[in-house]
Design a protein around this nucleic acid. Structure first.
Length: 524
RNA sequence: GGCGGGGUAGCUCAGUGGUAGAGCAGAGGAAUCAUAAUCCUUUGGUCGGGGGUUCAAAUCCCUCCCUCGCUACCA
């Protein structure tokens, strides 16, 4: 039986600055999803990468006295590095300065042109030289001296007309509305969909898709004083990475259309309007889903350098390690909504759930097996109702519940289901009190410890997407072979064999102990 | 301004007509296998304000207040 393909992407990160926690959050979310799907029997392709063209990068490079490519190389390296220390399982890391991507983009451009969807015209508007940006009338005000200024930045604006190629976005208005109508799940969460629909209903203007005021970009084929607007170039990464247009390796045929574009809420419009319109023009099937996640906040504020409340991905991993960092971010925030993050909140969550609940469950169970069962998987007797109840909960019940949450990308809910099982197991161990049975009924003690070991095996399996390293250590400790670790092995059909040798147990989720409480208050 | 979300226990949130819920935090107790971890019990809310419909409203209607998002060419 061939596996069903599953293609997931993150947004490609803009290389004007190294990764911040928002980048980490997004790529972790995508990684958790990718790992889950792989373990659940899908043939997964997971893409992330960097977006390297555009005026901002050119400008940043100039201020650093570097060539744009050199600058992009340096920043891209920090994003690639991030995939390592966060333990991200991406299948490819695309960079938009790659040759094949440039060629693919130019090919797409010609295709759009051949369908009559690109035309040359002038882009005109109020431009601030200082801000290097156009502003709409509503963003402007008039100064005492009569000059027009941008209200937000206070800089003077002048009327500028610039030659530009346009994409006939307006032609796709109705098709897009039909898309949202016929595929209500195309944009998620649902409230984002409503925003997009109302935006499109206001009417779409054609999109200016080339620039002449700078040159760090992909040259427009046949008119090289223009470079492609960076978003056109950027969006095309999702297909160029798969080998569009030649598709030499067959990736495009196999994995397109994309199952999930995971992106930030700030770029929903590009992915839910421009991107499908471009694909419609190219006559390429549309992605199945665009999911816009929320932002991480601290104390209700955006993280910013000026507020001094920035938590960097490196800081996070240094303090908690990759596993616990991934857990904290996925658990603490409802995916799709903004969420509050802080050192104390994350520490509390990690200690309460990973260390105290799950970690301690594993430790207390395995150390009893180690001491009282000769270090082997104990031999169960006849199972009682309570035993079946726990095993069912930790088996199919949990898998079905967790899978349901993953379908909705509700990672924090999925973890809630998992923690619930560990909770039930802790209640079970207290109620059954194997340490008492040791003196009164060793056969029953063995049964109880067996049921717990089985529960731990299931927990280890289901935790793999979130905390890959620790989950593997848990599975090692209950001697689960490497080829018995995907989700078909969850449940009683693949239960542990009594008598199997177990290694000496070691803690997998250490408690976070703050040596400097003062450091907490700083960000609390 | 327009459109759309929210406002429920200290915190994060669930709950769309029928006696207010969960997790965490707080309090008390039990246990001692375990990472001083665990388990049980429990305090706590006039469900943003006001008005209305109804036998009955967090839940429906009106109104007001507060808050957040979207309202195109930086990405």
């Amino acid at each position: 039986m061939t596996k069903q393909p599953f293609y997931i992407t993150t947004a490609i990160s803009y290389v004007n600055a190294p990764p911040h926690l928002g980048h980490a959050y997004e790529v972790i979310g995508a990684d958790v999803m990718a790992r889950f799907k792989r373990l659940d029997g899908f043939d997964v392709y997971f893409l992330t990468g960097t977006d390297e063209h555009g005026q901002k990068v050119q400008k940043m490079a100039e201020t650093k006295g570097k060539s744009p490519q050199q600058f992009a190389d340096e920043i891209a390296a920090t994003f690639i590095d991030q995939t390592k220390y966060l333990n991200i399982s991406n299948d490819q890391f695309i960079r938009t300065t790659q040759d094949d991507h440039k060629k693919a983009s130019q090919h797409a451009w010609r295709e759009l042109q051949s369908r009559g969807d690109i035309y040359l015209n002038k882009y005109a508007g109020w431009y601030s030289v200082r801000d290097e940006a156009y502003y709409g009338e509503d963003e402007l005000s008039t100064r005492e001296d009569g000059k027009k200024i941008c209200t937000a930045t206070g800089t003077e604006v002048e009327w500028i007309e610039e030659e530009s190629y346009f994409f006939k976005l307006s032609a796709y208005e109705q098709k897009l509305l039909d898309l949202y109508e016929n595929h209500p799940d195309f944009i998620q969460p649902a409230f984002r969909r409503n925003e997009v629909v109302s935006f499109v209903k206001q009417g779409l203007k054609d999109l200016s898709i080339s620039r002449t005021s700078f040159n760090w970009g992909i040259p427009v084929p046949g008119d090289e004083k223009h470079v492609m607007y960076v978003w056109i170039d950027a969006l095309l990464n999702y297909i160029s990475a798969l080998g569009y247009p030649e598709d030499k390796n067959g990736l495009f045929k196999k994995y397109w259309p994309c199952d999930v574009h995971l992106i930030g809420k700030d770029i929903v419009r590009f992915h839910a309007i421009y991107w499908p319109a471009i694909l419609m023009s190219l006559e390429i099937p549309l992605p199945k889903r665009v999911f816009g996640h929320g932002f991480l906040l601290t104390g209700g504020n955006k993280m910013s350098k000026s507020l001094g409340n920035v938590i960097s991905p490196q800081n996070l991993v240094e303090k908690f390690g990759a596993d616990a960092s991934r857990y904290a971010l996925m658990r603490e925030v409802t995916f799709g909504q903004d969420g509050d993050i802080s050192w104390p909140l994350m520490t509390a969550r990690i200690n309460a759930e990973l260390a105290n609940n799950i970690g301690n469950l594993v430790q207390r169970t395995l150390s009893q097996i180690n001491k009282n069962c000769d270090g082997k998987v104990p031999q169960p007797g006849i199972l009682e109702d309570v035993d079946h109840a726990l095993l069912n909960h930790a088996g199919q019940e949990m898998l079905i519940a967790v899978r349901g949450e993953f379908e909705k990308l509700q990672f924090s809910r999925a973890l809630e289901e998992i923690v619930r099982v560990a909770n039930a197991a802790n209640a079970y161990i207290d109620e059954q009190a194997p340490w008492t049975l040791k003196k009164t009924d060793t056969a029953r003690m063995q049964t109880v410890l067996y049921v717990l070991a089985e529960t731990i095996r299931n927990l280890g399996l289901i935790l793999q997407p979130f905390v890959p390293v620790a989950a593997h250590r848990i599975l090692d400790q209950v001697a689960v072979p490497a080829d018995a670790r995907d989700f078909v092995h969850i449940g009683t059909q693949h239960a542990l064999q009594a008598g199997a040798e177990l290694p000496k147990p070691e803690g997998v989720f250490p408690r976070i102990v703050d040596e400097e409480p003062a450091a907490q208050e700083k960000t609390a």
